[in-house]
């Protein structure tokens, strides 16, 4: 018995030393399951669907992940997503130069993030509550500026749309059925890698971990905690805006409920990816794996002809298993 216990704790020690061990393991397990159980899972179209759909939410997820590592929440990203979509869409419909529309959408989303940051840092209201409020408020803004109606862009296809999110057609059409790879996957990869480097290699990255880990200690070490938190809120808002314009460049249409529920998907992806709700630990890679896992789950269940409603149940189960495993590995259990 003692020998076994030491073996177990050695494995536990080893695994804990590999960051994202749980995220990788759960991702691998779900992938293997569908690869074996779901017909047509290992096809270019299925893989492309997973990557393309995950890339939009994924860009939101990495913003939320950085914020969560610094110990804060943002429940308003879905609503910010909708506001930015409408700003972009309505500008294009009004024939404002496309670049200006893009800029406006990004500035507005960054400003909404800034507002979140200022509310949280100046009033001291927990970000969970503060952004619950702005989630409702921003949704109201989206509905108001959109007139509670759809907004379509049906004019000439824009060069900007192609730059932002063109389909990779020569690749897609080499498969049958044609696949759905889009440039947004590259944007997602680029943003994720960039932010992962910032977190790992820069002073700002250290500040983020310090702010989330132990705010008092960080303050006493001279970390500008407030500025870090505000900056991360701006980042989360901005990335929600980036994701929304990429999506609009693909879909050319936005409805008043666009992005609703995205905030919870983002939190779920982060938690499955090994981020702690209390902040101070986790990685961008983990959060991305979490998002890909959720998207894989959705596609896999459709392929197995299982009603999508099961998705929530399974996603919830995986989330709980991931949290328990992470807690166990990090020695807090």
């Amino acid at each position: 018995m003692p020998a076994q216990a030491t073996l177990l704790s050695r494995v536990r020690f080893r695994l804990a030393a590999i960051p994202d061990a749980v995220a990788l393991a759960s991702f691998g397990a779900v992938f293997l399951f569908f690869a074996l159980a779901a017909e047509n899972f290992l096809t270019p179209l299925s893989i492309a669907n997973i990557l393309t759909f995950a890339s939009i939410s994924g860009i939101v997820v990495v913003g939320v992940a950085v914020l969560m590592i610094s110990g804060e929440f943002d429940l308003s990203v879905g609503s910010t997503f909708a506001v930015a979509s409408y700003v972009f869409a309505l500008g294009l419909i009004a024939e404002v130069p496309p670049l200006l529309c893009l800029l406006a959408a990004l500035v507005v989303s960054a400003l909404l993030g800034l507002l979140n940051g200022l509310i949280v840092t100046t009033t001291g209201i927990p970000s969970f509550i503060a952004t619950l409020g702005t989630m409702l408020a921003y949704r109201g803004i989206a509905r108001a500026i959109g007139g509670s109606d759809f907004a379509f862009y049906s004019g000439e296809p824009l060069l900007l749309f192609r730059i932002l999110n063109a389909p990779l057609d020569s690749l897609n059409k080499s498969f049958s059925p044609a696949a759905t790879f889009r440039i947004s996957i590259l944007w997602f990869g680029l943003i994720a890698v960039l932010l992962a480097q910032v977190l790992r290699r820069t002073r700002f990255g250290n500040w983020v971990f310090a702010t989330g880990g132990n705010r008092g200690a960080a303050l006493s070490l001279g970390v500008p905690v407030r500025r870090v938190v505000v900056a991360n809120f701006v980042l989360a808002g901005l990335l929600a805006g980036v994701a929304s314009v990429l999506q609009f460049a693909h879909r050319s249409s936005v409805d008043p409920l666009r992005g609703e529920g995205l905030e919870l998907i983002a939190v779920a992806a982060c938690v499955i990816g090994g981020l702690r709700l209390t902040g101070g630990s986790g990685s961008i890679l983990g959060a991305c794996l979490g998002m890909l896992l959720l998207q894989m789950l959705e596609q896999g269940l459709v392929l197995m002809q299982i009603p999508v409603q099961v998705f929530q149940a399974v996603a919830g189960l995986i989330l709980i298993i991931a949290v328990i495993s992470n807690t166990y590995l990090t020695g807090e259990g």
């Binding site: 017909e39 047509n40 096809t43 179209l45 299925s46 669907n49 393309t52 759909f53 059925p177 759905t180 999506q247 879909r251 249409s253 409805d255 409920l257 666009r258 992005g259 959705e298 596609q299 459709v302 392929l303 002809q305 999508v308």
Partner: peptide
């Protein structure tokens, strides 16, 4: 609707 559109692509994959 965005998820509904995504479901169409997921359905095609099946």
């Amino acid at each position: 609707l965005e998820q509904t559109a995504a479901l169409i692509d997921q359905a095609i994959a099946a």
